[in-house]
Design a binder for these strands. Structure first.
Length: 779
DNA sequence: CGCAAAGCTTATCTG
DNA sequence: AAGCTTTGCG
C-alpha cells in the first residue's frame, strides 16, 4: 500500500491519526476535508485493523459518497471498500429500513415517495377534508409538514405546540395539524415513506426497539459525518443514538458554509456536539489549498460580517492571482451574453477547457439566459437541477406499474396506471373507488379485491377485475423472474411500450427512447453482482425502485464531461472550478426577498455568498443586471448589498453593455461569427414587448379568426332517433342533429370510445365521438 | 371519455 | 414565459 499519510499537513494528519473518541473537525472551505475523511477511513482499516463492515460514513450527496468510496478503493485496492457503509443519510437509512420495515408495521418493500408523490397525497388529503386548496397550497403544506418531521415532531405534538398553532392561525391555515395527521395515516396505509420518513422512521426504530439500537450501535464502531453543519435535528438525534456505545463519532463541518436551514439544518448541532461528549477532540483545518489569496481574502472579508462564528482564520500559500471582476449589465440577457463571451475569450487566451467554468446562481429560474447565450455561441454546457430521469412522466408511468406490483397498496402508483393506457376506468369510477377506500380506511387495492360489493357498473366491474388479475399475475412473476424480465413483460403486456412506439412525434420518439433507457438501467442493475464478499445485496425489484427514488439529476450527469456547468449555489456545495461566474447579485434575488426578514436569514444568504466565492480556484466574476424578467414582467433591482462587502482593492469594475461586449470584431472566421452576432442582436432587440411593440402579425390579417368555424344549421328530421353506436359502419349515410347529413368514411378509437370520421354534405369532415354525439343511420 | 383551448399559477434552496 | 389545471365540446 502506498504511503497514504504523505501529503497531509500537520492538522490534517492529527485528524486522521486520532483513534478512539469523539472528534469535531472544523474544516474551512478548500482545506481538504474529503481527503481527511477518506484517509481517516483508510488509516482505521490499515493501522487499527478496523473491519470495513464496522465503519459508517454519511454524506449529503450520492456523488460525495461515491467519490469517497472510490478514493478508499484506489488506495486499499482489494475490494474491501465495498463493505463500507458509505452513502447519503437517506440511502443508508433506506437500506437498513428495508430489513426492519416490518417491525414498524410497513411492508418489507415499502415505497419511497418523492416530493411529487408526497404533494399528490397532500392534495388528496386536503380535498378529502373539504379544505380550500387556495389556502392550502401543496408547496406550503409540504414545507410545513417536512419541517415538523425534521424536528421529530409528531402530528399530536404539532397540534399541541402553541407557537406553531399561533403561526398557522395567523397565516390562515388552522387545519394544518389535521392535514399532517391525515397525511401520515394515508402514507402508512399506502405502505409508503416520504424522504423525511427515512430519517424519522429510522430514528423511531432506534429509539423504540432496544434490540435494533444495540445491533446498529455494535455494528457501527466508527462513524464519520460529512457536512455536519447541515444536519437537522432528526439526523442529529440519530447520530447521537448510534454513536452512544462506542463514542467514535467524527464529524466534519464548516459553520460558515451552513446553507440548508430551510431543510431544518441548524448550526447549533456543531456547538451541541461539544457538549454531548465529555472530551471532544477539536481539530481546525485552516489552510486553504484551493483558491488564490485574493479570492480567499474576499471570502474572509465577506463572512466576517456575520456574527458569532466558530473562531478560525483561513489562510493560503497560493499566489495572489487576478482581481475579482465586478460586472454590471443592463438586462439578464446581457448578463448571459457577457458570460458566454467571456468564456469564449478565456478559453482562447488562457487555454481553459469548458469544464473549467461554472455559472452559479441563486435560483434555478436564472439558468435560461445563460443557456440561450451559450447555445448561440455553440458552447457545450450542462444544467444541473432539472428533473431527474426517473421523474419524467413516461418513466414514472412504467415505474408506477412496477411500484404497484411490489406494493399494491401504493395508491399513488395505482391512480397513475389504473387507466393508463386507457381501459375505460374514468374519473367517476376512480372517485368511487377512492371514496370507498376512505370510508373503510383501507387501501384502494383492498377495495378492488371485493369490487363486486361496491355497485360498479357491469362493464366497469369487468375491467376492474381484469386489472386486478393482471397486476397479480405480474406479482407472481417476481418469484421466478428477475427485475428486468418483469419490467419488460409489464411494458409489453400493458400496451404501454406499444403506445409510446406508435407516437411518431419528436417528443413521442424521445419518450419511447426514455422507456428503453429505463429498461436498460433495470437490466444493468439486474446483472450487476448480487453479493459483495459474502454480504448478499438485495437485487429485488423493490430494492431497485427504492434506489432510483433517491437519485438526483446530478447523479446521472457526468461531472467530467467537457462542458460548462450551470447550477444553483446550493448544488455547487463541495465542488470547485477554475473559473466561477457568480451571477445575479441583486437585491431581492441575492439576498433573496424571501430571506431578508431576520438576521438569521440574511446571514445564511451571506454564507451562500461565501460558498459561491470559495468555489473559485483562479478567477471569479461577480455580475448583476439592472433589469430582468420575472413572470414575464420586467423588474428593476438594486445591486446586492453583498457587493459592498467586497474590498475595493480586490475589485475590477466594468460595465458590459449589450452592444460592446465580447470578442473583438476581428476574430478569425469572421463571416460566420459576425452573421450570428448581428442575428442575435436583432433577436434581442425585437423579441421583447417592452421595447415598444409586440411581435404579432398584422391585426387586420388575423381578423376574427378565432371565432368558431361557421356551422350551416340543420334542422333534424322529424323521425330523428339516434342509432345504437355499435351499429355504425363505414360507408353508411348518417344524420347528425347539428351538422346534417353525411357519410362515414372511417371508424377508429378504442372499443370503449369509438370515433367516426364523417364527411358532411354542408359542414365538411368532422370526427364524431359515438359515446356522446348521436348519429342516426339515414339509409 | 379524451382532446384542445383557455385560464391560472408560478419561481428560494434539496434528498 | 412556461407549465399545469380547468373548461368546453364533439
Amino acid at each position: 500500500m502506498q504511503d497514504y499519510l504523505g501529503g497531509l499537513n500537520e492538522r490534517q494528519r492529527e485528524a486522521v491519526l486520532h483513534h478512539n473518541g469523539p472528534m469535531l473537525v472544523v474544516a474551512g472551505a478548500g482545506s481538504g476535508k474529503t481527503k481527511v475523511l477518506t484517509t481517516r477511513i483508510i488509516h482505521l482499516m490499515a493501522a487499527h485493523q478496523v473491519d470495513a463492515f464496522n465503519i459508517l460514513a454519511l454524506t449529503f450527496t450520492n456523488k460525495a459518497a461515491r467519490e469517497m468510496k472510490e478514493r478508499v478503493e484506489r488506495i486499499l485496492g482489494d475490494g474491501e471498500a465495498r463493505n463500507l457503509y458509505i452513502g447519503t443519510f437517506h440511502s443508508v437509512f433506506a437500506r437498513i429500513l428495508r430489513f426492519e420495515a416490518e417491525k414498524l408495521g410497513y411492508p418489507k418493500h415499502f415505497t419511497i415517495y418523492d416530493t411529487d408523490d408526497s404533494k399528490s397525497v397532500m392534495k388528496a388529503v386536503i380535498n378529502d377534508l373539504h379544505l380550500d386548496d387556495k389556502h392550502y397550497k401543496p408547496n406550503i403544506v409540504y414545507n410545513r409538514i417536512s419541517a415538523a418531521k425534521n424536528a421529530l415532531m409528531s402530528p399530536e405534538e404539532y397540534r399541541n405546540d402553541y407557537a406553531i398553532q399561533q403561526e398557522d392561525m395567523r397565516s390562515g391555515r388552522p387545519a394544518l395539524s389535521q392535514i399532517y395527521d391525515s397525511y401520515v395515516k394515508r402514507c402508512f396505509r399506502n405502505g409508503a415513506m416520504d424522504f423525511d420518513d427515512l430519517l424519522l422512521k429510522f430514528y423511531q426504530l432506534l429509539s423504540t426497539i432496544p434490540e435494533c439500537l444495540s445491533r446498529y450501535q455494535q455494528k457501527f464502531k466508527y462513524i464519520l459525518i460529512d457536512e455536519y453543519q447541515d444536519t437537522n435535528p432528526a439526523q442529529y438525534e440519530i447520530i447521537k443514538l448510534l454513536g452512544a456505545m462506542h463514542e467514535n463519532v467524527c464529524v466534519v463541518g464548516d459553520d460558515a458554509q451552513s446553507i440548508y436551514s430551510f431543510r431544518g439544518a441548524t448550526i447549533e448541532n456543531i456547538l451541541q456536539f461539544q457538549r454531548d461528549y465529555d472530551q471532544v477532540k477539536l481539530v481546525k483545518l485552516e489552510q486553504n489549498y484551493r483558491s488564490t489569496s485574493q479570492i480567499l481574502a474576499v471570502a474572509n472579508q465577506v463572512i466576517s460580517n456575520n456574527k458569532g462564528q466558530i473562531e478560525k482564520v483561513l489562510f493560503t500559500e497560493n499566489p495572489a492571482g487576478e482581481k475579482i471582476q465586478l460586472v454590471r449589465t443592463l438586462t439578464d440577457n446581457d448578463e448571459g451574453k457577457f458570460v458566454a463571451d467571456s468564456i469564449q475569450e478565456l478559453k482562447l487566451r488562457h487555454h481553459y477547457a469548458h469544464r473549467d467554468f461554472a455559472i452559479l446562481y441563486r435560483t434555478n429560474a436564472q439558468s435560461r439566459a445563460f443557456e440561450e447565450a451559450l447555445r448561440r455561441m455553440g458552447i457545450p454546457y450542462t444544467i444541473y437541477g432539472g428533473i431527474s430521469f426517473y421523474q419524467r412522466k413516461e418513466v414514472k408511468d412504467l415505474v408506477a406499474y412496477l411500484r404497484l406490483i411490489v406494493n399494491p397498496h401504493d395508491e399513488e402508483a395505482l391512480k397513475r396506471v389504473i387507466n393508463y393506457p386507457a381501459r375505460g376506468i374514468g374519473k367517476t369510477s376512480l372517485d368511487k373507488l377512492l371514496l370507498a377506500a376512505n370510508e373503510k380506511d383501507c387501501s384502494s387495492w383492498t377495495i378492488l379485491q371485493e369490487a363486486r360489493s361496491y355497485g360498479f357498473r357491469a362493464g366497469t366491474l369487468t375491467v376492474l377485475e381484469e386489472f386486478v388479475t393482471m397486476i397479480k399475475s405480474f406479482g407472481s412473476m417476481l418469484e421466478k423472474s428477475n427485475a428486468y424480465d418483469v419490467a419488460f413483460y409489464v411494458g409489453k403486456q400493458t400496451g404501454l411500450v406499444k403506445e409510446l412506439f406508435n407516437d411518431k412525434s419528436t417528443e413521442g420518439i424521445q419518450r419511447y427512447e426514455n422507456i428503453q433507457e429505463l429498461l436498460n438501467s433495470i437490466k444493468e442493475w439486474t446483472e450487476s453482482p448480487d453479493n459483495e464478499d459474502g454480504e448478499l445485496v438485495d437485487k429485488s425489484l423493490g430494492a431497485y425502485l427504492q434506489q432510483i427514488t433517491l437519485l438526483t439529476d446530478a447523479d446521472e450527469k457526468d461531472a467530467n464531461a467537457d462542458t460548462v456547468k450551470l447550477m444553483t449555489i446550493h448544488a455547487a456545495k463541495g465542488l470547485e472550478f477554475s473559473c466561477v461566474f457568480a451571477a445575479g447579485l441583486e437585491e431581492m434575488l441575492f439576498p433573496n426577498a424571501m430571506a431578508i426578514n431576520t438576521r438569521e436569514e440574511l446571514e445564511e444568504e451571506r454564507r451562500l455568498f461565501y460558498v459561491v466565492i470559495t468555489r473559485a480556484k483562479e478567477r471569479l466574476w461577480v455580475s448583476y443586471a439592472n433589469t430582468r424578467y420575472r413572470f414575464g414582467q420586467l423588474v428593476q433591482n438594486e445591486p446586492s448589498r453583498f457587493i459592498n462587502e467586497i474590498p475595493e482593492a480586490h475589485l475590477d469594475k466594468r460595465f458590459a453593455g449589450s452592444s460592446s461586449t465580447g470578442m473583438p470584431r476581428s476574430t478569425g472566421g469572421a463571416g460566420l461569427f459576425s452573421k450570428q452576432r448581428s442575428f442575435s442582436r436583432d433577436a434581442v432587440a425585437n423579441n421583447r414587448p417592452a421595447s415598444g411593440e409586440t411581435k404579432k402579425e398584422t391585426p387586420s390579417y388575423v381578423g376574427p379568426a378565432k371565432a368558431a368555424p361557421k356551422v350551416i344549421p340543420h334542422t333534424p328530421s322529424a323521425n330523428f332517433v339516434p342509432s345504437d353506436a355499435s351499429k355504425i359502419e363505414v360507408g353508411q349515410r348518417v344524420e347528425h342533429a347539428k351538422f346534417g347529413f353525411g357519410k362515414v368514411i372511417s371508424l377508429e378509437g378504442a372499443a370503449h370510445n369509438p370515433v367516426a370520421t364523417v364527411v358532411f354534405e354542408h359542414n365538411g369532415e368532422k370526427k364524431i365521438m359515438l359515446n356522446y354525439a348521436r348519429l342516426r343511420i339515414a339509409d
